[in-house]
Computed example of a mutant assay.
Amino acid sequence: MSDSLAEHVHYLGLANRSDLYRSAISDCIAPDDTVADLGCGVGVLGIFCLEVGASHVWGIDSSDAIYLAQETVRKAGLDKHYTCIASSTFRAELAEPVDALICDHIGYFGIDYGIIDMVRDAAKRMLKPGGAIMPDKLVLQIAGVSSDACHEKAAAWSDDIVPKVFHWIDEQARNTKYPHEFAPGELCSAPVELGQITLNADTPEYFSFEAEIEITSSGRFDGLAGWFKSHLGNDVWMTNSPLDPNGIKRSQAFFPIARPFDVQRGDRISVTIRARPEGNFLAWDITPRGGPTQKQSNWATTILAEADRATLDGPLRLNDNAQASQYILSLVDGQRTAAQIEETVMRDRPDLMPSQQGTRNLVRDILKRCAVS
């Protein structure tokens, strides 16, 4: 719960964010509308919807924040109009379609926190035909980076303070997207629009965007900065651009390159960025005019265990963890309490973990995640 407290009070404190959502909600949510808030956190956007006359809000979140939302609406006397659903939005089901979907899973680069897949799935299953989506459009923007702070961030694993045996991880670090709060002086090109995504339309299985940036200040080219503009409704746009004084002050994304190079004012660099809708996979290619292409991808940061490297061509079996989970869940029969299940396990299978306390903790964790009363 401590992580949820820190994360969501940070969201609430982002400059201009609440004001922009309030304005858009006031314009777009009609009296008596019903709303689903996807990944609702502590419930603030849904409460804004109730304030302008929405008849009911379903707040959906799989994190501990949903319990903060539940207690908040109860204390505020709003629980008859706000239903909390402790679940992934991909599992949640509503009794009837809603008039509007609202979601703030926008991330640093707009598409890197799963909003595309989340909205696409919910729109098909939860939204009335012609219903509203907020935001309904994302505009992705990029600029070149020349920044000592970013350079050091990407090169941290090859620093002299790190034992040389770990320097191989430098390659992993340079294929990682980093949050960074850019100062305008860290950008060595003017921003360009990379592409637009309409969230209330069918989306492809992957996106590929191309753009060209022109260097405006000579120096060392360290990679790309990326940020978003999101259309919330009518004339209301929200952005985390480091160049916009009305931005929400959310960090931007830094995409490093493996080998920084010198650039001169007027140089042009081609950029291709590819992404999957679920937000987990990002790849970026950077090609200076007349120079070699550097290809980076956060797939390269996935360190695969031996089991992950195995192909799925042969027969499969459950691993030890899955077998233990299967056994514990087999005892959930609608009759036993959690305490009774725990004691049954301790009597019959105390060896599920190396210690008895470890077995008790395993039972409690599995029941907490997978069982309901």
Results as ranks from 00 to 15, higher is better:
Val52Leu: 00
His81Leu: 06
Val9Gln: 13
Lys124Gly: 02
Pro135Asp: 05
Val145Lys: 02
Trp299Ile: 15
His10Gln: 12
Ala15His: 15
Phe221Gly: 03
Arg265Glu: 13
Tyr67Val: 08
Ala123Met: 05
Met118Cys: 15
Asp348Gln: 13
Pro135Trp: 03
Gln264Met: 12
Ile85Ala: 02
Asn246Ile: 09
Pro350Cys: 01
Ala305Phe: 13
Glu152Met: 14
Lys75Leu: 15
Glu71Leu: 13
Thr337Trp: 01
Asp267Thr: 03
Leu232Phe: 02
Gly77Glu: 00
Ala371Gly: 06
Phe221Glu: 07
Asp79Gln: 10
Arg317Phe: 06
Pro163Leu: 03
Ile133Asp: 04
Asp222Cys: 06
Ala149Arg: 14
Leu194Thr: 04
Val192Asp: 02
Val192Lys: 02
Ile47Ser: 08
Asp121Ser: 07
Gly233Phe: 04
Ile106Met: 04
Gly41Thr: 08
Cys40Tyr: 01
Ile142Cys: 05
Arg220Cys: 10
Lys153Phe: 11
Val9Cys: 11
Leu367Glu: 01
Pro97Thr: 00
Ile115Ser: 01
Asn280Met: 15
Ser325Pro: 03
Ser270Glu: 13
Gly41Pro: 08
Glu278Thr: 09
Asn298Arg: 06
Leu367Ile: 05
Glu210Pro: 04
Met346Cys: 04
Phe90Trp: 05
Arg317Ser: 12
Leu243Val: 05
Phe209Asn: 09
Gly46Met: 05
Gly43Ser: 01
Leu316Met: 10
Pro350Glu: 02
Tyr327Glu: 10
Glu51Arg: 06
Ala322Leu: 11
Ile60Val: 08
Ala65His: 06
Val162Ile: 11
Val98Pro: 02
Ser330Ala: 13
Asn240Pro: 01
Leu316Glu: 11
Cys370Met: 15
Asn280His: 14
Leu243Cys: 09
Pro163Gly: 05
Ala149His: 13
Phe261Ser: 07
His151Met: 13
Gly130Met: 00
Cys49Asn: 00
Val52Asn: 04
Gly334Cys: 03
Thr72Gly: 09
Leu224Ser: 02
Gln356Thr: 08
Thr239Gln: 05
Pro129Met: 05
Arg120Ser: 15
Ser189Val: 03
Ser147Pro: 01
Asn175Ile: 12
Met346Leu: 15
Ala300Pro: 13
Asp262Cys: 11
Ile366Glu: 12
Ile257Arg: 09
Leu78Ile: 03
Asp79Met: 08
Glu306Thr: 14
Asp285Leu: 04
Asn16Glu: 12
Glu71Ile: 07
Pro204Met: 09
Arg360Phe: 02
Asp313Ile: 10
Asn200Thr: 10
Thr239Pro: 07
Leu38Ala: 01
Ser218Asn: 04
Val139Asn: 09
Phe209Ser: 05
Ser4His: 07
Asp136Glu: 08
Glu210Phe: 07
Asp117Phe: 06
Leu78His: 08
Asp160Tyr: 02
Lys164Phe: 14
Leu78Met: 11
Ile257Gln: 08
Ala253Val: 06
Val162Glu: 06
Cys103Asn: 10
Pro292Lys: 09
Arg22Met: 05
Val98Leu: 01
Glu93Arg: 00
Ser146Arg: 03
Leu282Ser: 12
Glu152Cys: 11
Glu7Arg: 14
Pro179Cys: 02
Trp227Ile: 04
Glu96Pro: 06
Thr83Asp: 03
Gly219Asn: 06
Arg125Tyr: 03
Trp157Phe: 09
His56Trp: 01
Val57His: 00
Asp333Asn: 11
Ile47Asn: 06
Ser62Glu: 11
Ala24Arg: 03
Asp37Lys: 05
Asp136Ser: 10
Ala54Leu: 01
Leu78Asp: 07
Ile169Pro: 12
Leu316Gly: 11
